[in-house]
């Protein structure tokens, strides 16, 4: 089972008493505002959780894995997530079976 937007909205409904419509929009807009900031070229820093940074990648040679044909991978901007200290500590001790 994975955590989804629906489950997060349900949590807001139960814990904070937002109504279902508010909770759903809150979760939708939360992710949309982060996407929108990144799209506009801004780093997003959520203290205690982590940072979403942008990295510029240069063009590099690639290959079509099916045909073996060489095709350049164009220069691009990508998102990298750097977890914060608090999140790292919380997760590090997980002793599960993943």
């Amino acid at each position: 089972m994975a955590l989804t937007k629906a489950a997060i909205a349900e949590h807001l409904f139960e814990e904070l008493g937002l109504n279902k419509r508010e909770a759903k929009e809150m979760v939708e807009m939360f992710f949309e505002e982060i996407r929108s900031a990144l799209e506009q070229g801004y780093q997003v820093k959520l203290s205690g959780f982590g940072n979403f940074d942008l990295r510029e990648k240069k063009q590099r040679p690639g290959r079509n894995p099916k045909t073996g044909e060489e095709i350049p991978i164009s220069a691009r901007r990508v998102v990298v997530f750097r977890p914060g200290q608090k999140l790292k500590l919380k997760v590090e001790t997980y002793a599960g079976t993943e």
Binding site: M1, A2, L3, T4, K5, A7, I8, H11, L12, E15, L16, L18, A23, M26, V27, F30, F31, R35, L46, G48, F49, K86, L87, K90, V91, Y94, G96, T97, E98
Partner: peptide
């Protein structure tokens, strides 16, 4: 709400549960 969303996400990962948000 923002704090609750982030706590919920951190808690899920701390329990070894993935988070999947389409898009």
């Amino acid at each position: 709400a923002v704090k609750a969303i982030l706590d919920c996400m951190a808690h899920s990962l701390a329990n070894g549960e993935r988070i999947e948000v389409r898009g």
